[in-house]
């Protein structure tokens, strides 16, 4: 069994046994969809009559947010395991450094994928429409995974770069919120001011969001407008983001070993 899989397996075992963590991780995205989705829906429905479409439209953003929060939590766990010395067991074991990071990123992403399923289910319950064939679902899964591995890499890098929890949270907050709000997640790209639309085009989250809209939430496309990011670009950017995130985490982790 490869080392990444062994570490993934350990983290997932801890997750499954920790009832508070697993249940808490499911409640949070549900709250997001219900509070934000239902609120926006009742705002849009009377005037524009497209409240349900907006719920479909914003679901990818909630998935992105969940992935970002999951990675932030995972980076925090990593920081604590480093400071407590638990990571030392891995460093002196005959395994590659990258597999330590990949194992952690994989466990972060497994949790985030479970949450994403819950988001979709709750989204449908409050009015969204999911669509797409098997291939579309596989593609959407791949996009979420790639994007999540990328941001997990950033979080693991941040968690390797400091032993101070406060510093870690400050670094992550500087990235996490802009990634969501400076993207096309909550508003269509062509409704944004030109400068913000450009920022959003450089934001990997936009590519996850538009990728999901084109695969399993096609109902949202009417609202997404004409400035849709092409699906091939969504894959290219998310793949690049995943590779860049993991390379960054490996570099920072290596340099933290003195």
């Amino acid at each position: 069994m490869s080392a990444a899989l062994i570490i993934w397996n350990k983290q997932m075992g801890k997750f499954a046994r920790n009832g508070q963590e697993s249940i808490g991780s499911l409640i949070q995205p549900v709250l997001w969809v219900v509070m934000f989705g239902v609120g926006m829906r009742s705002l849009l429905e009377p005037s524009l009559g497209n409240g349900d479409t907006y719920v479909s439209f914003m679901l990818p953003g909630i998935i992105a947010l969940t992935v970002l929060s999951g990675a932030t939590g995972g980076g925090m766990t990593w920081l604590l395991e480093r400071v407590q010395g638990i990571v030392k067991e891995y460093i002196v074991a005959p395994i590659a450094r990258i597999s330590i990071l990949l194992g952690n990123a994989a466990s972060i992403m497994t949790k985030a994928l479970i949450q994403s399923v819950v988001i979709l289910v709750v989204g449908v319950l409050v009015g969204a429409t999911v669509s797409g064939g098997v291939l579309d679902w596989v593609a959407s899964l791949a996009l979420v995974l790639l994007f999540g591995i990328g941001f997990s890499g950033i979080a693991l890098a941040a968690g390797s770069s400091t032993d101070d929890i406060g510093v870690y949270h400050m670094m992550i907050a500087l990235l996490q919120l802009p990634m969501l709000f400076m993207s096309n997640a909550l508003y269509p790209l062509d409704s944004l001011p030109t400068w913000l639309a450009w920022v959003a085009r450089f934001n990997p989250a936009s590519y996850l969001v538009d990728g999901l809209r084109q695969t399993i939430l096609t109902d949202a496309l009417t609202m997404a407008g004409s400035e849709l990011l092409p699906l091939w670009a969504c894959f290219a950017v998310c793949t690049g983001f995943a590779v860049a995130g993991m390379v960054l985490s490996l570099r920072v982790f290596r340099s933290s070993l003195g």
């Binding site: 350990k10 801890k14 395991e81 407590q84 010395g85 638990i86 030392k88 067991e89």
Partner: peptide, 9 residues
């Protein structure tokens, strides 16, 4: 190691 490095979960 000198310090205890066990995952106590």
């Amino acid at each position: 190691f000198q310090e205890t490095v066990l995952d106590d979960a």
